[in-house]
């Protein structure tokens, strides 16, 4: 019943009865990779690649998070359901982010009520002909 990760090693002093023992070398290599990635992400901050700065920064962060989850948190060897829990929770965060961002981006001009110059700028740039230009900072129901 127990997955491949939970083969039991009874009463062997160097092994746990339950769970999976990750060798120290794996942990150290993971740490080194994390530190290198940290230096890399700081370095990339000073290079201008336009829109891709944020993409690279998030990409490296995701990579680092994956390393932590898989090796420090033993998720690589863990039971499938625990992996599902982790991935499902992150998907729900992505869901929340995606739907709210889509909505606020749709409504973006009306968000700049504190900054009418910016409203005008956005309106002029993105939808010069759109009827929404008649609005000034007040949202309409759709």
């Amino acid at each position: 019943m127990a997955s491949r990760a939970h083969a039991q090693h009874r009463t062997d002093d160097t092994h746990p009865i339950v769970g999976h023992l990750v060798p120290m070398s794996t942990l150290v290599w993971t740490t080194l990779a994390l530190l290198v990635l940290t230096i890399l992400t700081v370095a990339v901050r000073y290079i201008d690649v336009g829109e891709f700065n944020i993409v690279i920064a998030i990409g490296i962060a995701v990579l680092k998070a994956t390393l932590v989850a898989l090796f420090f948190m033993h998720l690589w060897w863990d039971r499938p359901f625990n992996q599902i829990v982790f991935v499902a929770c992150i998907s729900f965060v992505v869901l929340l982010i995606a739907l709210t961002v889509i909505d606020t981006k749709q409504n973006a001009p009306t968000l700049y009520t504190g900054n009418p110059a910016r409203v005008q700028e956005v309106l002029d740039a993105k939808a010069p002909e759109a009827p929404i230009t008649k609005q000034t900072g007040l949202s309409s129901p759709g």
């Binding site: 739907l99 889509i102 129901p141």
Partner: peptide
């Protein structure tokens, strides 16, 4: 249940696209 929360906000200034979805 996680995909329908916006139906509480149809008249709150939510965008037309999200209202439809």
């Amino acid at each position: 249940s996680f995909l329908v929360w916006g139906h509480h906000m149809f008249t709150s200034g939510q965008s037309a696209l999200m209202n439809t979805i």
